[in-house]
Design a binder for these strands. Structure first.
Lengths: 204, 204
DNA sequence: TTCTATTATTGGACTCAGTACAACATTACG
DNA sequence: CGTAATGTTGTACTGAGTCCAATAATAGAA
């Protein structure tokens, strides 16, 4: 569960993985996430039920392919930041870089789902797992660049706050429907909301 | 799942509910959350398996009794705040009021669990559902006091950030073990980390 | 091409959480 | 004492997720 799915985007649409993703997307839209069984998905994809679990550790993972890929890319971006640079500014820049690549059409399944038919709670919980993964990531990054423990209250608060703001950006972006602006703009605004205070607390 | 369990604390320790809670707590410590089945819990509690579901909608709910109660109380506190007061300050005050009542011993089961034996992911996801519930709560509160839409990016970012910071406070407090200071102190520090920036963004 | 070592796919059997519903017990209360 | 509400239980079911061993498919070396 919740593991990264490195760059699942842009793969041949005939690999088992892609076929499963497509079948799932269709069925979720037709019948709702909750009412779709893994058996139905694999049946439509023309593979066995077990094959599903070769590619996804949980049913909900298929909802978050885009987001998982984005988090994977963020991981790499953050690792590439050299020591001794302003942590928050780099954090923001890295996030915007990752998000710049995401077209207005590539909305995570879970979020459109939520839009079309309020599957809310079901899907939401699995989304939160991503928030947590991103929090961890950010906490480690901040800790490294601020020479603090990643378990530090200061670091954890900041990481959670940032991850929460990022999450809000995704959510609002997805809900804005067809007329939505690029994700990076939302992300930028969300950062503005929290980062002023964080800068003050973190640099000291 | 994730529903509030209004004030479960301070009830006679012989009601089915309390008996189940106690049995679960014991078993989780003995065998880990993951390796404990609902059947085992109810067996030790001397009730039927179904009775468990009369009181908890999910196995993980029993981990979060304390936290759910705290969120319920926060809900009431926030509803009681009269219009036209500084939203963030009131938010902080309400949180501290709620948390003041929580003794150093009343650590949520899930968090001690995590300490004793890293059941991590399993329990963590269910904890995040609480973070979400609190986010919603805060978003509604902020929206009301700032005359904005609760779906607003600004409002959502702030709410998520605050909820994340609160979460961090709980986590660190729990992990600090026996020598921990009162939860309110952690909460206060966590607020400091984010609120400066939020004040700037929100009042305008 | 043929052999071989990986890797992908499958079948089958299993555990357990969560749901639905009807029957039964208990309690409160007029 | 009778009745309605509430708590508890039994039974039967669905579906996610795990485990493991068997079988295909494939790539790469010889």
């Amino acid at each position: 569960m919740v593991q990264g799915t490195p760059n699942a985007v842009g793969r041949p649409r005939t690999s088992s993985r892609a076929v499963i993703e497509d079948a799932a997307a269709e069925l979720f839209l037709e019948n709702t996430y909750a009412l779709t069984t893994i058996e139905q998905i694999t049946q439509r994809a023309g593979v066995s039920r077990n094959t599903f679990f070769n590619y996804f550790a949980a049913k909900s993972d298929v909802l978050w392919v885009e987001l998982d890929a984005a988090i994977d890319r963020l991981t790499l971006e953050l690792q590439a930041v050299p020591e001794g640079r302003p942590a928050l500014a780099e954090m923001r820049a890295a996030t915007l870089r990752v998000v710049a690549e995401i077209g207005v059409d590539r909305v995570p399944l879970a979020l459109t789902q939520d839009d079309v038919m309020g599957t809310a709670e079901e899907t939401r919980v699995s989304g939160l797992a991503r928030l947590a993964r991103r929090s961890d990531l950010i906490a480690v990054f901040l800790a490294r660049h601020l020479n603090r423990d990643p378990e530090d209250l200061l670091v954890l608060s900041a990481a959670n706050a940032l991850s929460g703001a990022i999450s809000a950006a995704w959510t609002v972006w997805a809900r804005d429907g067809i007329g939505r602006r690029p994700l990076a703009e939302y992300m930028s605004e969300a950062f503005d909301v929290v980062s002023a205070g964080l800068t003050a607390s973190l640099v000291e």
